[in-house]
Structures are given as structure tokens and as C-alpha cells.
């Protein structure tokens, strides 16, 4: 017995399996038609997920990381040297920002019920919202540049150094250049925008051919993506069917169902 093992009694395990089986059938009944069974299963799934998230955020984030440290030692704001402690930065500051957001929500509710009033409380939410958006955008943009744009450009540049490498590398590099250029050309000046006339007349047949190739490459890429998505979703369906009809045949659920069908 490890901490990872389920502590639920077997009857609960079987009950969960039974409920999962029934609601899987509800969802699959969409094949026949859209009905309240499908919607009921979907709404229940959404509701349970939201409730679980609320409980998880409280038990895994808010209580152990915020409220418990603050309640344990609420006044440890500065150390003996007069410097701010971690308690101030990771305890009181997030709590204050959260309360400001709550103030905006309370003001919104107050206005809905009273119908009027000065919206001064909601302006308090500007600070935490600006902090959230600013930090998120800053981290996202900086990460995209240093984690995706620069490495991918660097990799594309390395293709140019493959002249002295193996022929297969050279071929890969040339194909990459050809297809990337063709796709960009098609998206920029293909049939979608129709402004190919801006190019000099002698170049137009070449550019048209290149854009034609780029268009086919885009179709091919879309086909590959579709094929992988199809494989992914079929795997999910097979796993569900396998669980319901094959892997659990030895479980109490199937024994109950077989006994029910067999009348004894």
C-alpha cells in the first residue's frame, strides 16, 4: 500500500465505473441524435469539473500557500535588518491584489442590485489587472523570442551551411526553402489577394508556379495534421470502448450486468 493507491472502498470503484459507463452511453447517443441525455451528461461533466477546480484551488493553492503561512506568522513583514521578508512579497501582496479584484466584483454586484452608484471600487481592480496582463504579456513575448523565434531562425540559417554536408541535408534545406517561400508567396500574393500584378511581367510565370507549389504544400500539411488528429481521436474512442467492453470484463460491474441480463 503506497500513498498513490486508492483508498476508496471497492464498492465506490465499481460505482464510479458504472456511472462512467452510463454517461459514456449518454454522450455516444449523440450519434443517433442530439437530446437532453447528451446535454445532461455534458452539463454534469462541466459542473463537476468546475466544482473540483474550486476545491483544488482552495486545498492546493490558497490555503497551503497563502492563508496558512499568513495565519501562522502574520506580522513577519520585515527581518531584523529592516528588509522586506518573503512573507510580504508572496503573502501579503498577492492577498492585497486578490482583495482588490474582489472589490471590483463586489462593486459590480452592488450596482446590479442597487442600480446606481459611483463605480470607484471597480477602479481598484486596475492595479492587479494591469499586473496580471503586463506580466503575462511580458513573459509571453520574451519567451516567444528567446524560445521559438531565435532558435527557429537559427535552425533555418544552419540549413544554409549544409552545402558541405550530406546530400540529404542539402536536399532538406532546399526543400524547406522552396516550400516555405512558396507557401508565403501563395499566402501573400496568391489567389487570396490577387495582387500578383505588382510583380514584373517576366517574373509572373515563375512566381505563379512557386505559389502553386506553396499552395499544394499547404494542402499537404493540412492533410498531415488532419490524419494525426484523426488518429488521436480514434485512439481516444478505442480506449474508451476498450475500457468499457473489454478491460473491465472481470470487474464487478460486468458481473452485475451479466447477472442482471441473465436474471440471476
Amino acid at each position: 500500500m503506497t500513498p498513490l493507491d486508492s483508498t476508496l472502498p471497492p464498492i465506490w470503484e465499481n460505482l464510479g465505473l458504472l456511472i462512467g459507463f452510463v454517461f459514456s452511453l449518454f454522450i455516444l447517443s449523440f450519434v443517433i441524435r442530439d437530446s437532453w441525455l447528451v446535454r445532461a451528461a455534458q452539463y454534469l461533466l462541466v459542473g463537476v469539473t468546475l466544482a473540483y477546480t474550486v476545491v483544488l484551488v482552495w486545498s492546493n493553492v490558497l490555503w497551503p500557500r497563502l492563508f496558512l503561512p499568513l495565519l501562522t506568522n502574520p506580522l513577519a513583514l520585515f527581518d531584523s535588518g529592516g528588509q522586506p521578508t518573503d512573507q510580504l512579497w508572496v503573502g501579503w501582496l498577492p492577498l492585497a491584489a486578490g482583495l482588490l479584484l474582489w472589490a471590483a466584483g463586489i462593486d459590480h454586484l452592488r450596482q446590479r442590485f442597487t442600480g446606481s452608484g459611483q463605480p470607484w471600487l471597480r477602479h481598484l481592480a486596475a492595479f492587479p489587472l494591469a499586473l496580471l496582463v503586463g506580466v503575462g504579456l511580458g513573459a509571453g513575448v520574451a519567451g516567444a523570442i528567446q524560445g521559438t523565434l531565435l532558435p527557429q531562425f537559427w535552425r533555418a540559417g544552419q540549413m544554409g551551411e549544409s552545402l558541405a554536408g550530406a546530400p540529404s541535408l542539402l536536399l532538406t534545406g532546399l526543400l524547406t526553402l522552396l516550400i516555405t517561400g512558396g507557401a508565403l508567396l501563395h499566402l501573400h500574393s496568391g489567389q487570396a489577394t490577387g495582387d500578383r500584378q505588382r510583380f514584373p511581367a517576366p517574373l509572373r510565370p515563375v512566381l505563379s508556379g512557386w505559389a502553386w507549389l506553396g499552395q499544394r504544400a499547404l494542402w499537404l500539411a493540412a492533410g498531415v495534421i488532419f490524419a494525426r488528429v484523426f488518429a488521436s481521436r480514434i485512439t481516444l474512442l478505442i480506449a474508451r470502448l476498450d475500457t468499457l467492453f473489454f478491460s473491465q470484463q472481470a470487474s464487478d460491474l460486468w458481473r452485475w450486468l451479466l447477472a442482471l441480463v441473465g436474471g440471476g
Binding site: G140, G143, G147, T148, V224, I225, R228, V229, A231, S232
Partner: peptide, 27 residues
């Protein structure tokens, strides 16, 4: 996967092994 490449790996330089859905593979 992209988030971790951009935000975590770029800071700690650790190698990444990704286990993904088949639908994610081309991206």
C-alpha cells in the same frame, strides 16, 4: 509544450523529452 520550451527550458537549459498526443506531433 511551447510554453515550457519558451519559459522554462530557456532559463534552465535542461533537455526536453516530450510525450504528446498524435494531434500535437506536427506542431
Amino acid at each position: 509544450v511551447q510554453r515550457w520550451i519558451e519559459q522554462v527550458q530557456s532559463l534552465d537549459d535542461a533537455p526536453i523529452v516530450a510525450v504528446t498526443s498524435a494531434a500535437v506531433d506536427p506542431a
